[in-house]
């Protein structure tokens, strides 16, 4: 298996506060990798640094053999890394369709964009029924679907997901995770940041546990699920 993304000693600070203190991990192509941990462990900060929204203080990020450390967000998107933000960050005053079209902003291959749209509608039939509705009128779960759909419209090589289950009803959480598995089956590499540790590790090939800005455990998803430390701290004993 080849490594798609390699993070070396990545450190990110907000002013004087070190949120991420030197984490290293790698993502295998075509696999789901989970980054789990408690609130404030530095998971979201790591993701934001990968997508260029935050500037790393130290360390390096290599994507498909290229050093992308410190590139601007739009340059990173063009290389195929697309983030689905926490809190969904959809454009509420635009329609569902307009949101999806904007997702394909960086692409110029019309036929390919049409294919992606069909694929998104296949994954989320609900979105196809609501193409002309304003995104702000969707429920939380539907907005999350739209956010993921919009991310897929960019035809990423790597999808970064920040807390996709946050604030959703349990059934909707199941639905979102089921879709992630399906997306991954198409060959898309996924990095998943989650507080819902059990669900995240279940679908992940590889997992990393973050604590106060450091990687404290790294193993396969299945092994982490049965690791007593993980069980004690994150799975409620």
């Amino acid at each position: 298996m080849s490594v798609l993304l390699e993070v070396q000693d990545l450190a990110v600070a907000y002013g004087h506060i070190d949120a991420v203190k030197g984490v290293s991990f790698q993502l295998e192509e075509g696999k789901i990798t989970a980054l789990v941990g408690a609130n404030g462990a530095g998971k979201s900060t790591t993701l934001l640094a990968l997508s260029g929204l935050l500037h790393p203080k130290a360390g390096s990020v290599r994507f498909a053999g290229e050093d992308i450390t410190g590139l601007a967000p739009h340059q990173i998107v063009r290389r195929g890394i697309v983030q689905v933000a926490e809190g969904r960050a959809i454009l509420t005053t635009l329609t569902v369709r307009e949101n999806l079209d904007l997702g394909a902003y960086t692409r110029r291959d019309r036929a390919g964009v049409a294919d992606s749209l069909a694929r998104v509608f296949h994954l989320f039939p609900l979105l196809e029924e609501r193409t002309r509705q304003y995104a702000g009128n969707l429920s939380g779960g539907e907005q999350q679907m739209l956010a993921i759909g919009r991310g897929l419209m960019a035809k990423p090589r790597l999808l970064l997901l920040d807390e996709p289950s946050m604030g959703l009803a349990p059934l909707m959480v199941q639905e979102i995770f089921r879709t992630l598995v399906e997306i991954n089956r198409d060959g898309l590499t996924v990095l998943l940041v989650e507080q819902n540790v059990r669900q995240a590790l279940k679908i992940s090939a590889q997992g990393y546990v973050l604590e106060t800005g450091l990687v404290v455990l790294a193993d396969t998803g299945a092994s982490l699920l049965v690791n007593p430390k993980v069980a004690e701290h994150y799975l409620g004993g």
Binding site: G52, A72, H74, V84, A85, I90, E98, Y105
Partner: peptide, 25 residues
């Protein structure tokens, strides 16, 4: 146009626009 849609996205949500690959600056 593409540029007009980018303007609109930036006006609505700058972070979202960046994540979609729009050169905000």
């Amino acid at each position: 146009s593409r540029m007009g849609r980018a303007f609109e996205a930036i006006r609505e949500d700058e972070v979202a626009a960046r994540m979609m690959g729009i050169d905000v600056e």
